[in-house]
Design a protein around this nucleic acid. Structure first.
Lengths: 297, 297
DNA sequence: GCGAGACATTCGTGGCCGGCATGGATGTCG
DNA sequence: CGACATCCATGCCGGCCACGAATGTCTCGC
């Protein structure tokens, strides 16, 4: 059964005339006549009674008409949806991001995207880079904001990376700290300070791995949450390492000092999409928003 | 857009492999590959990502898949409905009948039809013959049980008639009436009886028109309803004319006598269907039930 | 490094579906 | 009552499309 036959059938049913339907469809009368005949032969029943002044639906024709209209309407809906998808009037993007990216970078990009394309369903899942790459490969996510330590670049062939920014490490110190006015500091200058660590969280491990050899911080306070950690710093209990992306969440009563490049090289941050998969327009636009958001940070 | 393309698309989406879908559909791989490519070209977006080990739906593909499945399912439903219609598993028949036919003939046929084909929607409208013929011509009814006086045969070219029965006139008399034991009577024998008439109802007019000239019944009771009319007869207040079809509604305490053919010729009863219109299987079966019901009456 | 598996592409051909023209049936009007 | 108009059916033919077969290309796995 051909869709065109159904369209012809619907037109004939509406016009109650083969000739009229042919005119509407820009066909000749003979073409429509044979279309109807073919459709009737295919379904094995008469769909129209031939009257002297046109045609009239039979009971079977009435039955088929309902279905034909439903089918054609649904098809129109499909076309509309595809057009919407192309024009970002619909669709879905599943975004993943590592935790500190969710502090400022990702929410800004999401907000900008949402206000520009409110009809695209945009979801976010927080996770660590390896898990996010798995999600991408499994098709459970469309975009992932991931990070790579400088010494071990991401070389996952399954994903395609778009560089967003290089994240530096900051040191959070209380406003009254002796180094609070400096812009760039060396780790060695903190040899006598107490450090407030992030416990055994993976962020902590990650940060630790970027530190230069030979630096052994004195740690006696472990705070898992950023708020607690920075609260301790503000209270003068010590200093703490803060990734640049999380800097937006720091209160005003402490200072953030950039570490010298030799002490902690930058962590690279990318937006990853599945390699070899076409990126929907929505995904492409979201990537652009991420890049812009990273530049404005 | 071709339906076949949608089927191919669905199969490929299910198999996640063009080759596999081709095997299921009994096509060559190349055919399916080009079908997919053509569909993608038509909608203007990529529906599948080509992976080394098969294909994967894109966002647009997922969108289309839902519609495609809906369309194909609806089409299957259409085919099922048409098959049901042929097998009397569905459909609709709108029946019309003149009032006295609804007394026994039509209800019996309807009951038989309904028990045989419970899934066919059968409706009944009571009306007079001219109105029923109008309904038929207008397409508002599928079958009409109509009657024709013997002297003025139905010659409406718009309908096709199937003869059901010839209806004779009966005379209802009380059980104790002097003629109660007779089977056939002449009107002249009732010259001294009082008649109970049906008022100005159309049935009465119709009956009166079939009576022979020269017979002037003595009427002093007019009862519109059959129950009242026959109640009067049973009470010995007089006699009444009863059309054969209404005879089933008569109580047991009165006798029904057939009139001699010379006094009142039979009224012909037909089942009418629109001329030139194909009769659905359900209509044909209903006609058969009407014929059988008329024969058994 | 080679074979297996998957998709893409090219080429030739048969079938299907248009338009064109004609025929048949029916209703209408002078 | 005959000519005309209207509408549907059908025979014929040409073009286009889609299929099959074969080949090319890429990737993965052994």
């Amino acid at each position: 059964m051909h869709l065109q036959s159904l369209e012809v059938f619907r037109a004939v049913a509406r016009h109650r005339t083969i000739t009229g339907a042919a005119a509407e469809l820009r066909y000749t009368q003979s073409a429509v006549s044979r279309q109807v005949a073919a459709l009737e032969a295919e379904v094995g029943v008469r769909l129209f009674d031939r009257l002297p002044r046109g045609v009239a639906l039979t009971e079977e024709g009435r039955s088929l008409l309902g279905h034909a209209e439903a089918v054609l309407d649904r098809l129109a809906a499909a076309r509309r949806d595809l057009a919407d998808l192309r024009g970002l009037g619909a669709g879905r993007v599943r975004l993943g991001a590592f935790p500190t990216a969710v502090a400022a970078l990702v929410p800004r990009a999401m907000a900008a995207f949402r206000s520009a394309h409110p009809d695209v369903a945009l979801t976010l899942v927080e996770g660590l880079t390896p898990a996010l790459l798995e999600r991408l490969a499994a098709g459970d996510a469309d975009v992932a904001v991931v990070s790579a330590p400088p010494d071990r670049p991401l070389d996952d062939a399954r994903v395609r990376l778009r560089h967003l920014l290089d994240e530096h490490l900051l040191v959070a110190v209380p406003r009254g700290h002796r180094l609070a006015r400096r812009r760039v500091v060396r780790l060695a200058e903190f040899a006598d300070d107490y450090w407030i660590a992030g416990s055994a969280t993976v962020e902590d491990t990650l940060l630790r791995s970027t530190l230069p050899r030979g630096f052994r911080p004195r740690v006696d306070i472990v705070a898992a949450e950023w708020t607690g950690k920075l609260g301790c710093v503000a209270a003068g209990l010590g200093v703490a390492l803060v990734p640049e992306l999380a800097a937006r969440a720091t209160p005003a009563d402490l200072a953030l000092l950039r570490l010298h490049a030799d002490d902690a090289s930058a962590r690279r941050v990318f937006a990853a999409t599945p390699a070899g998969r076409t990126r929907s327009p929505a995904v492409r636009v979201l990537l652009d928003h991420l890049v812009r958001s990273a530049a404005d940070l």
